[in-house]
Design a protein around this nucleic acid. Structure first.
Length: 480
RNA sequence: CGGGGCGUGGCGCAGCCCGGUAGCGCACCUGCUUUGGGAGCAGGGGGUCGCCGGUUCAAAUCCGGCCGCCCCGACCA
């Protein structure tokens, strides 16, 4: 076990904080609930952004930016929306040394102000669909913050679209959910369960909310992305209408969807181990680190020369490579330093390797001496991308195995209650309950309905709460 | 907001019970020797002990109040 990092099996929450500190991902801020994202942590977020942004653009969305401040009256317009967000709003009452005539809400999300603008921009069916996204910060006052997972201010992207028909908007909602799922699995190497939220768990103001739920290392669930079909709820209160081809005024059908810096927390908790962070190559700010090892001055020069030549040949191939030629710390120290930071592949190059015409490779997902192997210098630049791909898919497989091994099927509340206490994980159960049953379930077991998976099995059974016959299965779990 | 814990160099802690003017490990700086899994030795810098008040010749230590942070619960991406 690495120095300064708690064994995750002993205390997962403490381990999580240790990793964030030791890998220099974030630091606490002077204001409670806020956090400083440090350069290394921010670089991970930038890779998430780049990858998602490309997917948004490919599907026809454009980026825009809407203001941080929203007139308080906007938030009040949609009844469910106010009710959902009222307790967590930050409100500005003074500006320029004077009390404001109307208080300004620091955006918790932007549906209202975006609808305000949509109603001006959308006139005809020819203006639709309107497909926008913004990368922004939002504020939701938090009772109990956790780094990355739940902070008062956080960074996210929020997509907002308007469509002529319900069918089109519903397609968009699911299209974006699939994009999130694809990103989670293929870039972040996090397997997810896409599904629909229950009435109790859905976004305030939405008709239907969808989610991708991921399982963390301790068996808890993390809502890792959401996509909402908003119907005409906001269009009605903001008069977002268009003239259809039959010259009739219609309300637009809308969607909104988002992922946040919470994903960084998910990456930590899905992949991290007792030695610190582990990053999937496609998200890693540094994919390969080269550690030169020199015994004396003469070998030092040769080793450094070979190491920097290696770095250049990898960089040319688009591999994000760092050469740690800092002096004053031993190779062993550097091994650990970069391991804690989760760099997927380390290449060690020393006099012995040079004589053999090779380097020693150590993949982060198979740490220690046992996982090391040699790569001939001659073929190394061509080999590395393949090795990174292999690490990427191994990490996804490992995470998927963890999720599957900790997903259980139970048929009764008693069985569930007993089982989740001992083995936290996902539990698939028959369900026909409403909000009251969900509350009761949470009171008794601390678990919540994470989602109604899109992928439903055949057959029917009896709801674990009501005993009624149903064809619907849901996933229950403890959640962050 | 309820329950529990903690505030002492940058980080982690000891000292507090039994008052006497602050110490350890890591990190940091300098020099030499080192370098294949967190190097060694020598020297060095850095803290008005969370804040305010009280008791006392004397407070990190005792007393009162306040503030903050962390963990566990209710709200949430």
């Amino acid at each position: 076990m690495a120095k300064n990092i708690t064994d995750p099996r002993d205390d997962f929450a403490r381990w999580y904080q240790d990793v964030i500190r030791e890998a220099e991902l974030a630091d606490s801020a002077p204001v409670r609930g806020c956090m400083i994202i440090r350069p290394y942590g921010y670089a991970i977020w930038e890779n998430i952004q780049a990858s998602l942004d490309a997917r948004f653009k490919e599907t026809g969305h454009r980026n825009a930016y809407f203001p941080l401040f929203i007139p308080e009256s906007f938030i009040r317009k949609e009844a469910q929306h106010v009710e959902g967000f009222a307790p967590e709003l930050a409100i500005v009452t003074h500006g320029g040394g004077k009390e404001l005539e109307e208080p300004l809400v620091v955006r918790p999300t932007s549906e209202t102000i975006i609808n305000h603008m949509f109603s001006r921009w959308i006139n005809s069916y020819r203006d639709l669909p309107m497909l926008l996204n913004q990368w922004a910060n939002v504020v939701r006052w938090e009772m109990r913050p956790r780094a990355f997972l739940r902070t008062t201010e956080f960074l996210w992207q929020e997509g907002h679209t308007a469509h002529a028909t319900e069918e089109e908007a519903r397609e968009e909602t699911l299209r974006m959910l699939r994009i999130y799922a694809d990103f989670a699995e293929n870039v972040a190497a996090i397997p997810v369960i896409p599904g629909k939220k229950t009435e109790r768990e859905k976004f305030a103001g939405a008709v239907d909310s969808y989610t991708i739920e991921a399982m963390m290392g301790n068996g808890w669930a993390l809502q890792s992305g959401t996509s909402h079909y908003l119907g005409t709820n906001f269009a009605r209160v903001f008069e977002t209408t268009f003239l259809d081809s039959g010259n009739e005024q219609q309300y637009v059908h809308q969607t909104s969807w988002g992922v946040s810096t919470r994903l960084v927390g998910g990456v930590i908790m899905v992949h991290g181990d007792g030695n610190g962070l582990r990053l999937p190559p496609r998200l890693a700010p540094v994919q390969v680190v080269i550690i030169p090892i020199a015994r004396d001055e003469s070998s030092r020069a040769r080793v450094l020369e070979a190491a920097s030549a290696l770095r250049e040949s990898l960089k040319i191939r688009g591999v994000r490579t760092e050469l740690d030629d800092s002096e004053g710390s031993s190779p062993g120290y550097k091994f650990n330093y970069w391991e804690v930071r989760g760099v997927p592949l380390r290449l060690e190059i020393g006099p012995r390797d040079l004589e053999e015409g090779q380097v020693t490779a150590s993949p982060r997902n198979d740490p220690g001496r046992e996982g090391k192997f040699s790569i001939p210098l001659a073929s190394l630049p061509e080999d590395v991308p393949g090795i990174l791909d292999r690490i990427q898919s191994e990490m996804l497989l490992e995470a998927r195995r963890h999720m599957e091994e900790n997903t259980h099927t139970v048929d009764t509340l008693a069985e569930f209650s007993e089982s989740i206490a001992e083995r936290p994980g996902f539990y698939s159960v028959w369900w026909d309950g409403g909000p009251e049953e969900e509350e009761e379930l949470q009171r008794e077991t601390k678990a919540t309905v994470r989602c109604i998976p899109l992928d439903q099995p055949e057959g029917t059974g009896r709801c674990i709460m009501t005993g009624r016959k149903t064809g619907t299965r849901v996933i229950l779990a403890r959640a962050y």
